[in-house]
Structure formats: structure tokens, C-alpha cells
């Protein structure tokens, strides 16, 4: 299951993704109407609450987050860090426990 999840936490985020897009995007693809699924963007707490209501996300055991790779590694690592800290726990995720030193 993949979703676009863009927490807005900085001016740059707002500039790039500020427009609310929390609806399914429907477009014309392959000669038929296709449903692209949701992009979630907004304040982390709000999209965490919305993502927690996404039935498809709840049913999946793996959620893949599509990343805007052209914005570079630092930007995307920060985006993943925000999701890990402020969004993913709302869908029942917790970080993999670090391997103890010497293990």
C-alpha cells in the first residue's frame, strides 16, 4: 500500500506542498478513469489523525511512502524523520528497536 504523506513543518514545505490535497486524485490514464489514491499534506498532527482513519492503510501491514526524490537526500530524510516521529505512531507503527551494542 502506498500513499503520499507530506507533513508541513517548515516554510519550504509550505512553499512546495502548501496547498491542501487531502482528497483522492482522479485522472485519465490508460484510456479510463483511474484513481490515484490519496496525498496527505498538512500539519503532522492533522495528517496523523486523517491517516489513522484511512481504511486501506489500516488493513495493510506495510505502508510505503512515496518520496519527492528530486528534492534531495537531506529533504527526504527530514521528511521521513518527521513522519517517524509525528505521523506513523498514529497508524500503530513503532520504530524497530535498535540492536543492543555488542549483540
Amino acid at each position: 500500500m502506498s500513499r503520499s504523506v507530506i507533513p508541513i513543518t517548515t516554510d519550504l514545505d509550505r512553499q512546495l506542498f502548501g496547498r491542501d490535497a487531502n482528497e483522492d486524485q482522479v485522472g485519465w490514464l490508460d484510456g479510463a478513469i483511474s484513481r490515484f489514491g490519496r496525498t496527505y499534506s498538512g500539519e503532522p498532527d492533522r495528517i496523523a489523525a486523517e491517516l489513522a482513519q484511512d481504511a486501506a492503510v489500516a488493513a495493510a501491514d506495510t505502508l510505503l511512502l512515496t518520496v519527492p526524490n528530486q528534492l534531495g537526500v537531506d529533504y527526504n530524510a527530514r521528511l521521513l524523520g518527521t513522519i517517524v516521529a509525528h505521523v506513523a505512531p498514529a497508524i500503530g507503527w513503532s520504530p524497530t528497536p535498535p540492536v543492543p551494542a555488542g549483540a
Binding site: S2, D61, T62, L63, L64, L65, T66, V67, N69, Q70, L71, G72, V73, Y75, N76, L80, I83, V84, A88, I91, G92, W93, S94
Partner: peptide, 21 residues
């Protein structure tokens, strides 16, 4: 079952001014 998250990259590149790739 523990929920997992991962990232999915399309790996676009283009010579736009703002592009890091």
C-alpha cells in the same frame, strides 16, 4: 502484526534549477 513503513522512490532526474537530481 507489527505495522511497517518504508519509502518508495521513483528516482526521477531532470536538469531543472531546483532539482537535486
Amino acid at each position: 502484526m507489527r505495522k511497517r513503513i518504508g519509502f518508495l522512490s521513483f528516482g526521477h532526474w531532470q536538469r531543472a534549477e531546483w532539482s537535486q537530481t
